[in-house]
């Protein structure tokens, strides 16, 4: 019994830490599948979290917070698009710039507007996305295992958590079952062919980048409006990069992306839980090793030891129409 409780506990925290990773990872998926590399996920998430928390604090409404977070993230995504699509700039450089601008401006603006050392005011309950109880969760609480799983693991998350997991099949459907998705993938593999077919490469890539902005805005909102009650400085703490690692780990596919994010989230949850407690057989594992494991795993994958991660062929290359 105790084991089931502990397991549900750790899986529950896995889900909680995985959600922002998953949203950011799917965000990167749209952009990179369309041939625009994006290492600015971190910055867009951070800006979204700040904008969402600030707006939710001022208007005391989670929905307004969400809307503003998405608008700000899309705005930053459009800057990335403007630099890398319209002006054919280096996509990595642009992503680095976005991360810096977000890291600095969230602190400066936060301090200037709220005077709490870069934090936003603590949000009231109506400014947050509360926990949603699935129907019958209370009644089933005492049923062993199945009831526990239902009420302890599936129920009681915020709306954005369910949105994040529903976004996985939705993204799959968009990418692999719609005309837009086909074209989006084509523009990441062979933009010249898309251009020949009379479809605007730039407009397609812009739409992909906008999708990225929306999803990173959701990721930021989740962190500031659901997981926490407000924004604290540098709250994304490298999650954008872990999401990027997960995206590569999942070989740019939506469903594996979910599993990669859950795996990395599980490692995170486990490292918090195991802090200092020795494991059977292995002994005491340093926390730092657990924290570095997502990155190490990704490097091993990139090295080609666990399958091969092949990025979209036109990724990172600005499209120049041949004259």
């Amino acid at each position: 019994m105790e084991f089931v409780d502990a397991l549900i506990n750790i899986l529950n925290s896995t889900i909680r830490v995985s959600v922002p990773l998953l949203l950011a990872c799917l965000a990167g998926l749209y952009s990179e599948r369309a041939g625009v590399f994006d290492i600015g996920l971190e910055g867009k998430m951070l800006a979204g979290a700040f904008a969402g928390a600030a707006a939710a604090a001022v208007f005391a409404s989670a929905w307004i917070g969400l809307l503003v977070a998405v608008l700000v993230s899309v705005g930053m995504a459009l800057v990335h698009g403007f630099a890398s699509i319209t002006h054919r700039g280096n996509q990595i450089v642009s992503g680095v710039a976005i991360n810096f601008i977000a890291a600095g401006s969230t602190i400066i603006l936060g301090q200037a507007w709220f005077q709490q050392g870069g934090r936003t005011p603590s949000l009231p309950p109506e400014g947050r996305f509360g926990e949603i109880k699935l129907p019958g969760a209370d009644a089933l609480r005492d049923v062993p295992v199945i009831g526990q799983l239902y009420s302890g693991l599936l129920s009681g998350h915020s709306l954005l958590t369910y949105v994040a997991f529903l976004a996985v099949p939705f993204t799959w459907w968009v990418l692999f079952r719609t005309r837009f998705g086909l074209r989006l993938r084509a523009v990441g593999e062979n933009p010249a062919a898309v251009d020949t077919a009379g479809i605007s490469v730039a407009w397609l890539r812009y739409r992909a980048v906008i999708c990225t902005g929306i999803l990173t805005g959701l990721a930021g909102s989740y962190m500031a409006l659901a997981q926490n009650a407000g924004f604290v400085k540098d709250m994304t703490a490298g999650r954008g990069y872990i999401a990027l690692a997960a995206l590569i780990f999942a070989k740019w596919k939506p469903v594996p992306a979910m599993f990669a994010c859950l795996l990395f989230g599980f490692l995170d949850a486990l490292s918090i839980r195991l802090q200092g407690t020795p494991l059977p057989l292995i002994g005491k594992v340093p926390v730092q090793l657990m924290q570095a494991l997502p990155y190490i795993l990704t490097v091993i994958l990139l090295a080609g030891f666990i399958g091969k991660a092949i990025p979209p062929r036109a990724g990172g290359v600005p499209y120049v129409k041949e004259r």
Binding site: A83, H87, G89, N90, V93, S94, A97, I101
Partner: peptide, 8 residues
Amino acid sequence: ILFAGALE
């Protein structure tokens, strides 16, 4: 970085 790099 944005103006001297990506938007050069």
